[in-house]
């Protein structure tokens, strides 16, 4: 899947996620969500707590089974990817994730954490680490490559997590509150970095955030409420 600017990367059509709540009643975590993302675009997903932002991200990242609607990646229906192993293979090759917490493997160095995603994909370790060094250099982290996560600051850890998300050249990058644990300056840096990635690598990026300070960086802002998209589903890649 080689992206071209403006080409559809992710299409969600009338997606619903419904589950049984603790009291036995059915709960609609997502209802009739329709959303498109195109290559080179970075969107922000806003909304109050519990409105379904993270569920939307999980449905887009094939982590949550949808109960209605469809999810398509560059024209391929996710529903055709039937078993768990195939889903993981698909995620590994096409989707990158960044979270509020960096979730780095504590016993691996920064470069090893980045290389891990490639090693899992069958890339020889030496080649994976060479490429990981390149990614860390792009993120201005090459000088910290040999350090374990415990020896990195929060911002540095988040940059390593971004590098890891980019390791397999994903067409879609999903970020859940990536700047929540960072101060405003570091948070801004990470958001600018994501935008640069969207532009240079033509990845589609969806960022769930509460932070209004980065609003100006998004191509589009999607607002959610009670599991529904209430505004902003119109593609507008710059």
């Amino acid at each position: 899947m080689t992206p071209r600017r403006g080409r559809p990367v992710l299409s969600l059509r009338d997606v619903g996620v419904r589950y049984r709540g603790g009291d036995g009643a059915m709960v609609d975590a997502l209802a009739d969500v329709t959303l498109d993302l195109v290559a080179g675009e970075m969107i922000g997903i806003f909304g109050p707590s519990g409105c379904g932002k993270t569920t939307l991200l999980m449905a887009a990242g094939l982590l949550e089974t949808i109960t209605s609607g469809s999810v398509r990646f560059a024209g391929t229906a996710a529903a055709t990817i039937v078993d768990d192993a195939a889903l993981r293979d698909f995620r590994r090759r096409h989707i990158g994730f960044v979270f509020q917490k960096p979730n780095l493997v504590p016993f691996l160095t920064a470069v090893e954490n980045v290389a891990l995603a490639m090693v899992i994909d069958g890339v020889p370790r030496a080649a994976a680490e060479r490429r990981a060094m390149g990614l860390l250099a792009v993120l201005d982290m090459a000088h910290r490559a040999g350090n374990h996560p415990a020896r990195l600051s929060g911002g540095e850890q988040q940059r390593v997590a971004v590098a890891r998300a980019l390791a397999n050249d994903p067409i879609l990058l999903l970020a859940d509150e990536p700047t929540a644990a960072l101060d405003s300056r570091r948070g801004r840096q990470v958001m600018e970095l994501l935008l640069a990635i969207a532009r240079q690598r033509l990845a589609a990026i969806a960022v769930v955030t509460h932070d209004p300070r980065s609003m100006d960086l998004f191509d589009r802002v999607v607002e959610m409420e009670d599991g529904r998209v209430v505004a902003g589903n119109a593609s507008s890649a710059r």
């Binding site: 982590l63 192993a85 993981r88 293979d89 698909f90 995620r91 590994r92 090759r93 994730f97 979730n103 493997v105 504590p106 891990l116 995603a117 899992i120 994909d121 890891r164 397999n168």
Partner: peptide
């Protein structure tokens, strides 16, 4: 377990 969940998220196969 958290790292294992992370590995699955980034696509590690069960065999790995």
């Amino acid at each position: 377990l958290h790292e294992i969940a992370m590995l699955k998220l980034i696509g590690a196969r069960d065999g790995f």
